[in-house]
């Protein structure tokens, strides 16, 4: 019994991907309900005993940043759209991700199964797909370890309903899943190859401090009544109070540490 509920048919020709049909058939409501109530349904993966070599192709690493592109099949993508919406209402849930200071930019893009760009309406895949792309610092291994150590629940809800997703704890099957579903970049551009996100965050603080001192200096210099020595003294006080807080924000620059594959490839850099 396939019932099309009124008001749910998608208007043809709209480019708007926001208003995804929540569901098309009554049957899928029931199914997704079951899915909702049983999140761990049939997705357990046997922990791998051997140690497959996970990692990143070198082309995905430019300077201190790496590009990760993952495309995973999704079942009932509207649930994920809903969850991503929920996350947008809860920015504080993402503070641990922000505190990690590893990711410059990341994005999650839902690709509905019946709206492949440049394809006719008739072309439909069995599943919708979730595209995840991120620009992160540090090694692939650390990145995924920290996904499973620090923001495991966040990751699990972002990939909720991904087919075969083993959840982010334990980390080995999780890494294997990400590895199985990621694609290497053919071209990757990074505008700040010599700097990590932490360097950028520090630099913004330093800039604020410099502007602050610039203002104070102007104020002090404007005062014509004080002697040069007093001005020096006044400025020193300001300088001291500000720069004392910058001790952990003056990193040195340099090239990124080598990737594990570099060593075994005997690359001379």
């Amino acid at each position: 019994m396939r019932l099309i509920l009124p008001g749910m048919a998608r208007q043809p020709g709209t480019k708007d991907h926001w208003h995804e049909r929540p569901f098309s058939t009554l049957g899928s409501i029931g199914l997704s309900l079951v899915a909702f109530l049983r999140p761990a349904w049939g997705i357990s993966k046997i922990p791998l005993r051997d140690t497959p070599s996970f990692g990143m192709p070198l082309g995905d690493i430019v300077g201190k940043s790496s590009a990760l592109t993952v495309v995973t099949p999704l079942w009932c993508s509207w649930i994920n759209r809903f969850l991503l919406g929920l996350y947008r209402t809860l920015p504080a849930q993402f503070f641990p991700l922000v505190n990690l200071q590893m990711i410059h930019f990341a994005r999650w893009v839902i690709l509905p199964k019946d709206r492949w760009p440049g394809r006719s309406k008739k072309f439909k895949t069995r599943y919708s797909y979730l595209l995840f792309s991120s620009n992160f610092n540090g090694t692939w291994d650390v990145y995924l370890d920290e996904f499973s150590d620090v923001i495991s629940l966040g990751m699990d809800t972002m990939w909720y309903r991904s087919i075969g997703y083993p959840k982010s704890i334990p980390s080995r099957p999780f890494k294997a899943y990400i590895d199985d579903n990621s694609i290497e970049c053919s071209y990757y551009y990074n505008a700040l190859p010599g700097f990590s996100l932490r360097d950028v965050a520090s630099a913004l603080k330093v800039r604020k401090a410099i502007h602050f001192l610039e203002e104070k200096l102007a104020e002090i210099n404007q005062d014509t009544t004080t002697s040069a020595a007093t001005k020096d003294d006044l400025f020193f006080q300001q300088f001291e109070s500000v720069v004392a807080n910058l001790v952990n924000h003056l990193p040195s620059t340099g090239k990124p540490p080598l990737h594990a594959a570099h060593g075994t490839r005997e690359l001379n850099l």
Binding site: R81, L97, Q101, I110, G118, A201, K205, F212
Partner: peptide
């Protein structure tokens, strides 16, 4: 333009970093 897909969930750390720096007082830390 005709093949653009809408980014469902964008995340930019610079925004959050800048938010924190904005709230930071350089002289009292």
């Amino acid at each position: 333009l005709s093949h653009e897909v809408e980014t469902t969930y964008p995340f930019s750390a610079y925004f959050w970093v800048a938010d924190k720096v904005k709230r930071w007082n350089p002289s009292t830390d």
